[in-house]
């Protein structure tokens, strides 16, 4: 205790002065990031408003928002969003369940890993979009093939994330569990699960990102509703504002769902949040 005092006194000043700019930058950073796109959007709005460009191919923000408002008013927007969300949600769920199960099995049993992992790695090497024709032949042009494609996209990062996380659990910490005589199940619940959770959340977020990518691919291939359909429809009918509207909504939904995962995981990852904060700085 006595020895702590001088150390604290010494360090108190640099710590405070270091904390001030970091607190500032926590708010300043997102604002800084918004500066460029906001300026560009505003400038383009001005250019079109002044009549220097007709903005037909690249509609200004106001027209994009008008397109969104139109779609929303007719109820179309909600229908498309619901269709897309449903597909992503279902595909994500299947992909996560399969990826988690197989990843956990491969990570936990080395025999299963030797049997399973080479095949999965080989399949992973195939660009997932190459499966599209086969999925359509097998599962038809409707929902099933779309959801299968999304699930396949989600599966690989989750599988790899879970397996890698289990393989890299610190043997020394597992040993702590052993000295307290944890049974197989208690070892999983009290040591393995918490240890793999951070990597698992990351793999879920990567998987979700791929899910959004693949829903676009799936809906571009053939759909009568969904945000991807709005893209295609906008292209065929020459409505760039509608395309941009769909893109904006994709961005918002992608960010929102990603944030939901982060939010749901946050209470379980509180023990490491200071670490990720310093890592982000």
């Amino acid at each position: 205790m006595i020895s702590d005092a001088p150390v604290l006194q010494q360090s108190s000043e640099p710590v405070e002065s270091a904390a001030a700019p970091s607190r500032l930058s926590r708010y300043a950073r997102p604002v800084l990031g918004l500066l460029l796109p906001a300026t560009l959007a505003l400038a383009w709005e001005l250019v079109v408003w002044l009549g220097w460009s007709n903005g037909r191919l690249v509609p200004p923000p106001s027209r994009v928002f008008a397109a969104i408002a139109d779609l929303a008013r007719s109820g179309e927007l909600l229908r498309h969003i619901a269709a897309t969300l449903w597909r992503v949600g279902l595909g994500f769920a299947f992909g996560v369940v399969a990826g988690t199960l197989l990843g956990a099995i491969s990570g936990y049993w080395s025999l299963a890993r030797r049997l399973l992992d080479p095949t999965v790695q080989a399949l992973r090497a195939i660009p997932s979009l190459a499966w599209v024709p086969l999925f359509i032949l097998w599962l038809g042009i409707f929902e099933t093939s779309k959801i299968a494609l999304i699930a396949a996209g989600v599966f690989f990062p989750v599988y790899l994330g879970v397996m890698g996380a289990i393989l890299s659990v610190d043997r020394k910490i597992v040993e702590v569990g052993r000295t307290f005589r944890l049974s197989g199940f208690a070892m999983i619940r009290r040591i393995l699960l918490p240890a793999v959770l951070p990597a698992y959340v990351v793999s879920l977020r990567v998987g979700l990102g791929l899910g959004w990518m693949f829903v676009v691919a799936a809906e571009l291939i053939g759909a009568s509703e969904g945000l991807g359909y709005l893209l295609l429809d906008g292209q065929q009918l020459g409505k760039p504002a509608q395309i941009l509207a769909a893109i904006v909504i994709f961005a918002i939904l992608g960010k929102l769902t990603d944030w939901l995962i982060e939010l749901a995981a946050a209470p379980f990852l509180r023990w490491q949040d200071a670490f990720s904060r310093t890592k982000g700085a």
């Binding site: 020394k172 910490i173 702590v176 052993r178 000295t179 005589r181 040591i191 240890a195 023990w271």
Partner: peptide, 20 residues
């Protein structure tokens, strides 16, 4: 022959569980 309730061990590193 296996870890026993009456025997405890402390290692060179604390080996605390970071999530607790």
């Amino acid at each position: 022959a296996s870890p026993h309730a009456k025997i405890g061990i402390i290692f060179q590193e604390p080996r605390l569980l970071p999530w607790l």
